[in-house]
């Protein structure tokens, strides 16, 4: 049994001096150190190419850091492998910028995938899918092949899939990029709901409408480095 420091029970993400570079010598992130608490909503902003997506990829172990330590829920995620990594990923919901939808499957099937891998009962999956589609104003798209949906609709299906399994950590990359104001509001309402239910949420965005009046912390990245961290207080 491992002894955990009490603080680690309140911390969801710990990044210490994390760097990521791609060959030959492209530095995507440099010296990122940040701590995000459980149940916190955290905004990650910056221009295109600032390193937001790379940071999210490191958090869900899609990429490994070149240097530094990344802990998610007390586990060094970049060192996890096999079933341990799979179990950890089941607790992390990710809405990718490029959606990663199965375009030959229906919206409902795409959303169900994240719950199927953790062996949820079919009736629970069906109910959750219907509920999420309704919250995102996509009820009529239940049986529509995602390849036939508009980009805005695809984006919402991606978000629904990310939150479907009620993960402890939700990483969202540009959630409102293709949405109008009303739909953006719906999306944020859903994310706030998940946050109220206890999920830690990290949103990478350059849409200032969703963070300008926020009480949560906002971290700005510039050229792969932390430029500012403003607002909010760590709980």
């Amino acid at each position: 049994m491992t002894m955990q420091h009490p603080e680690s029970e309140t911390v969801m993400i710990e990044m210490i001096k994390v760097s990521k570079s791609y060959p030959p010598d492209v530095s995507a992130l440099s010296d990122i150190s940040v701590t995000i608490d459980r149940g916190e909503m955290f905004f990650l902003i910056g221009m295109s190419g600032a390193g937001k997506t790379t940071l999210l990829k490191l958090l869900c172990s899609m990429e490994t850091p070149s240097n530094g330590l990344i802990e998610v829920a007390g586990n060094p995620i970049h060192k996890l492998k096999g079933t341990t990594l799979a179990r950890m990923r089941q607790r992390i919901g990710v809405a990718y910028q490029d959606f990663k939808l199965l375009t030959d499957r229906t919206a409902a099937e795409n959303i169900a995938i994240s719950m199927e891998v953790s062996y949820k009962k079919p009736q629970i999956i069906r109910k959750r899918v219907v509920d999420l589609l309704e919250q995102l104003d996509l009820s009529d798209k239940h049986n529509t092949i995602t390849g036939e949906l508009s980009r805005g609709e695809q984006q919402r299906v991606t978000l629904a899939r990310a939150v479907a399994n009620s993960p402890a950590l939700i990483l969202v990359d540009e959630p409102t990029g293709n949405l109008d104001a009303t739909t953006t509001e719906r999306v944020m309402k859903l994310l706030n709901k998940c946050n109220s239910a206890g999920a830690t949420i990290v949103i990478a965005t350059h849409d200032d409408s969703i963070y300008k009046d926020t009480t949560h912390r906002v971290m700005e990245l510039r050229k792969g480095r932390i430029h500012t961290v403003s607002g909010g207080i760590r709980t």
Binding site: C60, M62, G82, T83, A86, R87, M88, R89, Q90, R91, I92, V94, K100, L102, I113, S114, V117, S118, R161, N165
Partner: peptide, 16 residues
């Protein structure tokens, strides 16, 4: 391939 990659990302085990 796309589906298998996605399955990994959403936490499917190798056995799955």
């Amino acid at each position: 391939q796309a589906e298998l990659e996605l399955l990994k990302l959403v936490g499917a085990t190798n056995n799955y």
